[in-house]
């Protein structure tokens, strides 16, 4: 990286150019982050001034069954969506990697679910999976003799439906990133392996997969945080319900803070999750660095 020689007037410009960033970041990111840490040690309802209660919120967190339920639901959600979208995305990436017009068209179209806003995609699913016999999905299923379902309002179906929805929504991204990864693998590697007598399966497991490893880490690193704190789709589709069947961490946090007005306790939940997620993302980023995406 070629740098210009240091000059006094440049220091002046560097200062002026960075000033808005420094001011706004201090006010809207680092100060609030510090405030959140402080709030996590207080009892606060937004109305009265926060009162310091030490580690009580953290003790409460450990013995909060609803927190553990939402933690388990979040882990199930994140693992199924990340692994599912990578596995399906991998198959999809190989299939669209061919020179036909249909493949080129698929590459353009398959990205649409990922690109449209979460709230809009969720609303479309609400319409299709409307409960009762006037819903489109129910109509198609009952014409096949498969009966009626309440989908997002059914306590047993809501969570699988949420995962199904997320796979539909997010797989296009994994597929496209993996596709560009596959295209970047030099053809000689695969040819050489074939000449050496490797079976197609061996070529895949021993040559292609190791080369895609960092790309998979990239997908995990970039999507882990957004899927851990998934909120917009959950809010639109189920609002955490029915009951607490889809109360993922993001939703639990929101309802604790802005529906039960326990801002202190919500801050504790937020800070614990943030620290945990940053830790995992940093681990993944270390593996990604080699491929130059530069997260």
């Amino acid at each position: 990286m070629p740098l210009l020689k240091y000059k006094k007037s440049h220091f002046f410009y560097a200062f002026i150019y960075l000033l808005p960033t420094i001011i706004l970041y201090s006010i809207f990111y680092y100060y609030p982050f510090a405030l959140n840490i402080y709030y996590s040690f207080t009892d606060w309802d937004f109305l009265h001034p926060p009162s310091f209660i030490g580690l009580k919120n953290y003790q409460r967190l450990i013995s909060d069954p609803l927190f553990f339920k939402s933690l388990i639901l979040t882990v199930i959600y994140v693992i199924s969506v990340l692994l599912g979208s990578i596995a399906i995305g991998l198959i999809q990436a190989f299939i669209i990697n061919r020179p036909t017009k249909l493949a080129a068209f698929t590459r353009v179209i398959m990205f649409i679910p990922y690109m449209i806003p979460d709230v809009a995609a969720a609303a479309i699913w609400l319409i299709i999976f409307a409960p009762g016999p006037s819903g489109y999905a129910n109509c198609i299923l009952s014409s096949l003799g498969l009966g009626n379902y309440s989908w997002f309002q059914d306590p047993n179906l809501a969570m699988p439906m949420l995962i199904f929805y997320s796979l539909w929504k997010y797989t296009g991204f994994s597929a496209l990133v993996l596709y560009s990864g596959i295209k970047a693998i030099p053809g000689e590697y695969i040819e050489a392996a074939r000449i050496d007598g490797a079976s197609e399966f061996k070529v895949f497991t021993r040559v292609i997969m190791p080369l895609l490893g960092p790309i998979i880490s990239f997908i995990i690193a970039t999507n882990l945080m957004s899927s851990w704190f998934v909120f917009s789709s959950v809010y639109t589709l189920t609002k955490g319900g029915p009951g607490t069947a889809t109360l993922l961490i993001g939703m639990y946090l929101y309802s604790t803070a802005f529906e039960s007005f326990k801002a202190g306790y919500a801050s504790t939940i937020a800070i614990i999750n943030t620290i945990f997620i940053i830790f995992i993302v940093i681990l993944q980023v270390k593996r990604v660095r080699g491929i130059g995406y530069g997260v």
């Binding site: 240091y6 959140n36 937020a270 940093i282």
Partner: peptide, 28 residues
């Protein structure tokens, strides 16, 4: 293009914002 003191530290401080989820900031 500029060279100045604490550039690396400042750069890391700016980029780290990327790691702060919105959810930890909305209450403050």
């Amino acid at each position: 293009v500029y060279r100045f003191k604490f550039k690396e530290a400042l750069f890391i401080a700016v980029i780290s914002k990327y790691l702060l989820p919105e959810i930890v900031l909305i209450i403050p």
